[in-house]
């Protein structure tokens, strides 16, 4: 139980997906303009990360390892995640249209998101068991969402402020991300 808590806090705060490990920078910079879309994207990422961990664990443990082809994991995981995301999109578009409206539009963005592939590869690299993988994915997704929401609030302030012309747009966004990232350094000593 204590170990699970450590895994959760590590992947959520001290090893934050976006601000410390640098995975999923594109959605982090792209979808953080508005608070609502930040929340939608965050929830979609949590969902896909947890499901991807649930799907990839049995494939890795019961198919790739017994056959001795662990090196195929990148190919297998990418195809699995892409298929899964496509399937979920089709299902919720048909069955739960309101959910599709709020979350579904972010799903295609996630297919080639390195954070999702990253978390499944991390699970196998750290040789987590099934429960630990899910907790790790949950922490990673929550960390992504927290970073995205904090950053969306920061950005809404930059939009209205007067910054030098050369730094308008992406440069100022990146420097703001640097400052948010500094705040996450405060968590480094949390688990010692």
């Amino acid at each position: 139980m204590k170990l699970l808590l450590v895994i959760l806090l590590t992947s959520m705060l001290t090893e934050n997906m976006v601000l410390v490990r640098f995975m999923g920078i594109c959605p982090f910079l792209g979808v953080s303009k508005k608070y609502d879309s930040a929340i939608g994207m965050g929830l979609a990422v949590i969902f896909v990360m947890v499901c991807a961990s649930i799907c990839t664990y049995p494939i890795y443990t019961f198919v790739l390892v017994p056959l001795g082809v662990e090196y195929m994991k990148t190919v297998a995981f990418i195809l699995l995640i892409a298929t899964f995301v496509q399937l979920v999109e089709m299902i919720i578009k048909k069955k739960i249209p309101p959910l599709y409206k709020s979350l579904g539009v972010y799903l295609p963005l996630i297919t080639t998101n390195c954070a999702v592939l990253g978390i499944t590869i991390l699970n196998t690299d750290e040789s987590y068991n099934f429960v630990q993988s899910i907790v790790n994915a949950l922490g990673g997704g929550l960390g992504f969402t927290i970073a995205l929401i904090i950053f969306a609030s920061v950005r809404s302030r930059i939009e209205t402020s007067d910054i030098p012309k050369t730094f308008k747009g992406v440069p100022s966004t990146l420097i703001a991300a640097a400052i948010v990232s500094v705040s996450f350094m405060g968590f480094t000593s949390l688990l010692q």
């Binding site: 992406v170 440069p171 100022s172 640097a178 400052i179 990232s181 500094v182 350094m185």
Partner: peptide
């Protein structure tokens, strides 16, 4: 550190 990465890239792009 991670923060320096964002900062350096921002300056270089500018």
């Amino acid at each position: 550190m991670p923060a320096g990465g964002f900062f350096t890239l921002g300056i270089i792009i500018a």
